[in-house]
Design a protein around this nucleic acid. Structure first.
Lengths: 151, 151
DNA sequence: GATAAAGCCTGTAGTAACTAGAGACTCAAG
DNA sequence: CTTGAGTCTCTAGTTACTACAGGCTTTATC
């Protein structure tokens, strides 16, 4: 890792980037990373371009972009002269998702906060949270879990 | 569903509770719901107690409790005379998780908001988000995705 | 050079919480 | 009786990893 042309095996890459060895192989398998050259013994050998790409993937994942969204971003970065308008569309949609998730979690937080506070006096024979969970028409709890994600 | 002793098949239960048929069967399989009696033809027949229990499960799920946490809550509700202190421990831990997730999402939101705003002028040849993702030491992006969840 | 431990490989399966068929049996209405 | 809807079990898939198992390679030490 001293010069632009030196190659390193997956273990050092994992240590350098903080990305699990198996996750690196996973990213290769799903196409986010190109398969690197191999040593005569079959070990993967990564160069600087691979490191940069893995960094990109990790950062995008840390922002909550799905694997497919990361794939789209990489494609835009690789193939477009002026990708910004299209990148913005992807990012703005994702920002909307993040905000919706925050709103969901906020609603949960509020209900949990209230019921934990009511349970604080651990002496009553009935439990406000359990009673609320059994109540069919409780207005303070949303009726269904929400699952959001598209690949 | 008119009297305490009348039983209904899974379809009407699904419609009544808004819970997918297959999800009801899933909950039975993982032990959250007891296996109901069957018609001579093998159809599941649910009574009122089942309905109440499914409502409990759904509401707990909508608050983000994991299947295992729901299992714990059900056990506390079923077996304890005064469950509230223990329920509170479960709920408070979960509240902490919810708050941590909100904090994570807030950090993502902030970064996304900034970069979407920078991309707003869709005319530059370089894209601030893409550049940021490629940058190894960017201080505004957390270094790794976080996964949290225990069964 | 020999040896042992660590590193790496591929393949398989598992995690959590669902969700979607496929093929076959049951039920209700016409 | 027929037909279409409902329900059954079983298997597999979704998303993003994660954890072996068994076997080959590399490295460090003697």
């Amino acid at each position: 890792m001293k010069t632009a042309s030196s190659l390193v095996a997956i273990g050092p890459v994992s240590k350098r980037t903080g990305c699990n060895i198996e996750t690196i192989r996973y990213y290769e398998r799903v196409g986010l990373l190109q398969a690197p050259v191999r040593s005569p013994g079959g070990y993967r050998l990564y160069g600087n371009q691979h490191l940069k790409r893995l960094t990109f993937v990790r950062r995008a994942r840390s922002l909550g972009f799905s694997i497919d969204e990361v794939r789209t971003l990489l494609k835009l970065a690789d193939e477009r002269k002026r990708p910004c308008a299209e990148v913005r569309v992807v990012a703005a949609a994702h920002l909307g998702d993040v905000r919706a998730k925050i709103a969901d979690l906020r609603a949960m937080e509020r209900v949990l906060d209230e019921t934990v506070a009511k349970c604080a006096n651990g002496k009553q024979s009935d439990c406000p949270l359990i009673e609320a969970l059994y109540r069919e028409d409780s207005p303070s709890i949303p009726p269904s879990p929400r699952r959001r994600r598209k690949g």
